[in-house]
Amino acid sequence: MKPSPFEYVRATSVADAVKALAAHGDRAKLLAGGQSLIPMMNFRMVAPEVLIDIGNIPGLDEITIGDGSVQIGAGARHNVVMASDVVRQHCPLLADAYSHVAHFTIRNRGTIGGNICHHDPASEVPLVLTLLGASLVLAGPKGNRTVPADTFFLGMMETAIAEDEMLVRIDVPFQPAGEGWSFHEMSVRKGDYAIVCAAVRLTVKDGAFHDVRVGFNGAGTETKRMAGVEQALEGKPATDATIAAAVKVAVDLSDPSDDVQADAAYKRDLLSALGRRALEQARARASN
């Protein structure tokens, strides 16, 4: 065993897991697919004293259709979400983004809930859930509460989830018919952490952009969605010139940082290039 010693608890129900969380407090971590937590424990970067395994809770991995939304159990494995006909049909932006998420073997173990709660700033799923207006259902000692994605994702590796809560479900509203969408990403290798991602939803009516939602990872901004970029598109003619002006706004609003993969200047270029490609593709997909 590479990690520091820990106590292992296997939860058999959500209530059971919530009870264990209440009992162990900040000494405990929830273990779902373990694709981020276990490496960090093996590196001894984190050393939880108690590991509460929620990987075997019946029903936590179900994907069902609710009232105008796809309801994805937090324990659903990435590959199951990615391959889900329901997700492809009703939330194609999420399905698109999944083609950039990690590698097959990681997606076989990793769960959508674990991915969201870990909230790596380069992660694709939190970005598209924000654009899709998803709601996150949290279970806690006082029952369930629902948090919109907009306010769920805070800073890097921070979320609105409290220490005694666990994520149980993600409700993703259907994308309306006729909507255009797109997801573009640049990483050093396929499946690696993204340097920059661009995600877009929009409609085109009477030759103009409407219902625009645009967001980026890697832009160095506090929010995933960029209101300034959305405003630069909303109601404007669906032309290349509008797109060019909008991606310029994205670059101006961005504040990326240098890292070992890429410097800020390059990330600004990617915001521009991927933003343009995503907007062009979304425009082409939207029915006019």
């Binding site: 890429a262 200047a265 390059y266 270029d269």
Partner: peptide, 11 residues
Amino acid sequence: LSPARVWAAMN
């Protein structure tokens, strides 16, 4: 020749 380096060189 990472994408970032190639992009920086050509720009």
